[in-house]
Design a binder for these strands. Structure first.
Length: 305
DNA sequence: CACCACCCCTGGACGC
DNA sequence: TGCGTCCAGGGGTGGT
């Protein structure tokens, strides 16, 4: 659920509310939510430490204590980090899996109904980076056309599948992949390695642009997402294709198409995001055409509804 | 190695 | 109202 803009909004909320605060007590309410076996107990949740920083890489969060300990947080699909300021009414508490109380009375809760998210405890930020962040590509907020070109080069999968791959670039999920491809005028099923230099420039610009716009709006709230202050985002109203299948394209008014790419619901405009004629067979080798047919028989890689 | 299918889990929307 | 079905923004893993 939360992609880069939503995670960045949460990070900023944490930076405002818990950085500089001391963890008076920390409790894990559901053991298996802490994914690092061995390190358990309050110390694994930074108890006794003072929060030095809240960091983000792609969709991953890290909370660092001044003594060096670090806690990785991933929100998965439905994870939330909710801050309750002293004296304020507590937010939702169902599916709360961990709770922190700070020296100024601030309370932080990690809740995650679907439990695709989790917590990872490390003795140092370096250890966290080496274990959890090592395989992440460059942060999508600062992706350049050149970095994108290098990482998409010769790739045969659909460009949308590549954008969702966190090793290619970190932070883009289903919503902003569709938004960035639409803004760049690139069809989601284009072979990743087939994009022209000009298309790569537009795509990199679109990725950075839509992510920045979404951060300004506090993220997209489709269902569960809320910032650390519990407030929903406003970007969902500004998204041009996500969630708008069957509605008119904002550019050409043709009805937006929906399909399935990389097992994800995909919305795009067939007029504004064109595929070359008889794609992909025009530029596919025999072996890839065979692979394409084999894939198509089981589950189409790129199918429209 | 690159890529894909499948799985993890709960809740909300929808149809009957 | 109640039940069944489908779907959802995430990633990890095992197989091809």
């Amino acid at each position: 659920m939360p992609e880069l803009p939503e995670v960045e909004t949460v990070r900023r909320g944490l930076a405002r509310s818990i950085v500089g605060r001391r963890v008076e007590s920390a409790r894990l309410l559901r053991r298996d939510v802490l994914r690092t076996g061995g390190r358990a107990g309050p110390a694994a949740l930074l108890a006794g430490g003072t929060i030095a920083a809240a960091l983000r890489r792609g969709k991953h969060l890290a909370i660092e204590a001044r003594d060096g300990r670090a806690l990785g947080v991933h929100l998965g699909m439905t994870g939330q980090l909710l801050v309750t300021r002293p004296g304020a009414r507590a937010g939702r508490n169902d599916h709360a899996h961990a709770r922190w109380a700070f020296d100024d009375g601030t309370v932080l809760v990690f809740r995650d109904p679907r439990r695709f998210g989790g917590l990872w405890s490390y003795p140092s930020l370096d250890a966290l980076r080496a274990d959890r962040w090592a395989d992440l590509g460059p942060d999508a907020l600062r992706i350049t056309a050149h970095e994108l070109a290098v990482r998409l080069a010769r790739g045969r999968r659909a460009v949308k599948a590549a954008l969702l791959d966190q090793a290619v670039l970190a932070g883009v999920g289903n919503i902003y992949a569709d938004e960035a491809l639409f803004r760049a005028g690139v069809h989601p099923c284009r072979e990743a390695g087939s994009l022209t230099r000009h298309e790569l420039e537009r795509l990199a610009d679109s990725i950075r642009g839509v992510l920045r716009e979404a951060i300004r709006a506090g993220g997209s709230t489709v269902r569960d997402y809320a910032g650390a202050d519990g407030r929903p985002g406003r970007q969902q109203e500004r998204n041009l294709v996500y969630g708008r299948g069957g509605q008119p394209c904002v550019r050409c008014e043709r009805l937006l198409a929906t399909g399935l790419v990389a097992q994800r619901r995909t919305v795009y405009c067939e007029a504004c995001q064109r595929l070359p004629m008889s794609y992909p067979h025009t530029n596919a080798s025999d072996s890839s055409a065979r692979r394409e047919r084999r894939v198509r028989r089981k589950a189409p890689e790129c199918s429209s509804d």
